[in-house]
Design a protein around this nucleic acid. Structure first.
Lengths: 186, 186
DNA sequence: GCTAACCTAGAACGGCCGTTCTCGATAGGG
DNA sequence: CCCTATCGAGAACGGCCGTTCTAGGTTAGC
């Protein structure tokens, strides 16, 4: 097993364990066991747990945004206009929320656990939310005020993630209908 | 110090510590020190940490909803209509977000930390969000579909709590303007 | 074939956590 | 006045965590 494969197996194990059970609740031994990588090698690749957690969050951020943009761009024709693409975000959220292992937004959860206590983790969370916002600004590019539109859409999306995780129900569809109203009003 | 005062001091210490630093990060010794109550007495009043955490959340839920409803009912005349009262929710959120020790929603944070791992804590979180929703349904009573309106307003409010905590900025005002649009559309 | 570097398995360490126990002090009821 | 029950301070306990260390194996270069 070369260095790259060890790194990927560690990040995969970290994602599965941290996302499903939380960060504090999962020890380094468990990550090592699931990845099949020795503890010494783990610490050679990630010098502390905070580094591993931040790397897990950054890897998840990239996969999450790639999945979202693939869904939006595949499902919505180029010239469909910004409203259709922004609404497609909620269709993707609905699919995500329906996955059996959905446990809310990993970044919101990490923020609740770590807060500002660790700079590495806090900045990974903040950057993910900034990149999500930037993506929405891009989708809203041909609207009068792309930034304002993106911020309102993001607020609805974050709210849907939270209420879906805690209360369940068709949170994405409800947020989508609010988004339709917001987008129709400009 | 009688039983009631000990209980209140423990809940006050728990609220300050858990809200500002997270649940996992605060040990029972620290709660005992800040409350000035012996550990034996703490465990006589709350048989486990989960009981203390759940009691902290339930006490915070009551104070939080009391503050919100006092703001909405004091600041908005009875006959102002449901839109004004629902928008006042966001004015109160703006005041809350501006408090120097604002660290996001305690219930969303607790959910991120505990998830479904503890039933006592999970049900306290769920019930808080249900009671918040029920309050909004009451505010929206004279609208065509009070439940649908309340759910959209709640989505915006939860989204504002999250984005304000992580990204800062005038999240409440932005959510308020989206809420204005949503409320004007029915 | 030897050395040196890197690997694994797992023990070890210091520290903290939740919980219980010890022990002496205190105070109210008979 | 004594007995009992509750109290406070803090030690003690078992367990887990993050991190480092040890011991021995495997491989690659000379």
């Amino acid at each position: 097993m070369d260095r790259e494969e060890a790194r990927e197996r560690l990040l995969g194990a970290a994602e599965t364990l941290y996302y499903s059970r939380g960060i504090h609740a999962v020890g380094m031994d468990e990550v090592r066991d699931r990845a099949g990588v020795s503890l010494a090698r783990l610490y050679r690749l990630f010098p502390s747990k905070a580094h591993l957690v931040a790397a897990y969050l950054r890897a998840r951020d990239e996969r999450w945004r790639a999945r979202l943009s693939a869904f939006v761009e595949d499902g919505t024709p180029e010239r469909a206009g910004s409203s259709a693409r922004l609404l497609a975000v909620f269709d993707w959220l609905a699919e995500w929320f329906a996955e059996p292992d959905y446990r809310g937004c990993a970044f919101i959860n990490a923020w609740g656990e770590i807060g500002g206590a660790d700079d590495l983790v806090a900045s990974a969370v903040r950057e993910h939310k900034e990149l999500f916002r930037a993506y929405l600004v891009g989708l809203a590019a041909d609207r009068p005020d792309p930034v304002a539109t993106a911020e309102q859409i993001q607020t609805l999306a974050e709210g849907a993630m939270v209420t879906s995780a805690i209360l369940g129900g068709p949170a994405a569809a409800r947020a989508r209908s609010a988004a339709e109203t917001v987008l129709a009003a400009a």
